[in-house]
Amino acid sequence: MRRLSLARSLRLALLGLAVVLSVLAGLGVAGLYTARQRYEDRVANAYALDAAAGRLLAAGVVEEATRRLAAGRTGAPQRRRARRAFDDAVAQARRFASGDPPSLRLIDATAAAQVAVRRRRATRGQALAARVPVAELSARQDARRVRARASARDDTRRALIAVVVAGALALAAALAFVAALLARVRRPLDELVDASRRLATGRLDTRVRPSGPDELRALGGAFNAMADDLAGALGRIRSERQRLRSTIASLGDGLLVADAEGRVVAANPRAAELVPELSVGARVAEAKPGLPPLELALEREIVVERDRRTLAVTAARVHGGAEEPGPEQAPSGGATSVVWTVRDVTERSRLERLKSEFVATASHELRSPLTSIKGFVELLEQSKGWRRSARA
């Protein structure tokens, strides 16, 4: 299974958090809307029942007044209309009270009291007593409105608390995910830092196990590749250094390396043979007979005679691992060392002396017969007037 990269993981985490918060916000808004709608429905029903109670009271009063004022046969139609209006008010009130049993019982009690008033000739006090359930019905609607308002506040509070709690839980989950992601990132980074420190101390066999997001896995692979390259480069450097050491040791010329204080820090076997007084640790300026002055050796090859040997000595400065810069170059900031080269030119000097002696001898030997021949030629030139026998 392919691992997610760090950037992709963060994007997915942020996207998931946004989706969860959006859903929670939607649920919260839906809860608040539902609470508000329930409150409006309850208040509207209470007001409708309150109005129905008013109509019911008015219809009862009208029926009682009609019964008293329209007596006899001529008032029968009016009494029937008044009764029908009261019955219609009761039916309408029943419809509004279908969801509230206490209100429905009060409406039934009002209807029963009105029927009892119809059957017997009731006094004014009995008629007023029949209106008591209507008053109770109206008072109940006031109480229902108060309870609906309180219930709406409670529902709103619960919806807000639920949204806040759910949002806090979502945020905590997002923080936990980020913390887990950071822990997943931190472990490989700690391993890389520790491996880098070990590598810096010279432990070139240090490697890391690539883990974590794609970026850190790529970084771990690059670190291992770098460690492999360093190990290979160091192996090559050591091999070249050994080869150079062997080459210097086999040189026919003496090679000395002196530090900035003029102390010999390295010398090959040939140098120990030619200038044995300049061993490692000795100072070039203090050794006797030692070497010629450094300034002269830097300018040209100096030939010195010592112990029946003729030695040619040269010197060169090395700045921070590089040869001495030319006049147009600035010296580097590294430490200055001096490399002395001592060459045995005894045989070459002997050959040059033999050559000089041969040339001198040959010149002398050739000069004597040539002088005689030159004298005879001049004599012949001066004897042009002589007789042939005299010239012969």
Rank of each mutant, 00 (worst) to 15 (best):
L137T: 05
A267E: 03
G221F: 10
A195K: 02
V342E: 05
R140F: 03
V193G: 15
R144C: 03
R124G: 15
A58T: 13
L137W: 03
L4R: 12
L32M: 06
A392D: 13
G385D: 13
Q242M: 11
R140I: 05
A58M: 08
R119N: 10
V178G: 08
A172I: 11
A316G: 14
R263P: 07
R309K: 05
V193I: 12
R94P: 07
R309N: 01
Y33R: 15
L199R: 04
R343A: 07
S368V: 15
D214I: 07
E323C: 10
A150M: 09
A315N: 06
L182G: 14
S22P: 06
A85C: 04
R270A: 10
E240G: 01
R317S: 03
E261A: 08
A150I: 05
R270G: 05
R300G: 04
D142I: 14
A176F: 09
S246N: 15
E381V: 04
A130M: 02
G60D: 06
A152H: 08
R306A: 08
E357V: 05
R11T: 12
Q141G: 01
V284M: 03
L296S: 14
G252E: 03
V345A: 08
V134Q: 01
V304C: 05
R105M: 08
V208T: 04
E215P: 01
R209H: 12
A392P: 09
R80W: 08
D155E: 13
R343C: 08
R147N: 07
L380T: 02
A173M: 06
A130Q: 04
A109I: 08
E347P: 14
P289A: 04
R241W: 10
R145Y: 01
R80Y: 05
A272D: 09
A111V: 03
V61Y: 09
S363E: 15
R186E: 13
P210K: 05
T156V: 07
A287T: 00
L199T: 02
E40Y: 00
S239L: 12
R187C: 07
G60S: 11
L181T: 10
A227G: 01
L204Y: 11
D41Y: 08
A218W: 06
D344L: 02
L27V: 13
S389D: 11
T371L: 10
R238T: 13
R197T: 12
A174G: 13
A297C: 09
A195W: 06
V62I: 07
V185I: 06
S383F: 09
I107D: 00
R149P: 07
L106C: 00
A65N: 12
D229F: 10
Q92S: 12
G320R: 01
S98Q: 14
R367V: 04
A267L: 04
A322T: 15
G232F: 13
A271P: 00
A225P: 05
L204A: 02
P289S: 02
A218K: 09
L189R: 00
G326I: 01
I161N: 08
R309G: 11
A183V: 07
L192Q: 00
D87Q: 02
T336V: 14
P292E: 04
L244Y: 15
G326E: 07
A89I: 06
R388L: 13
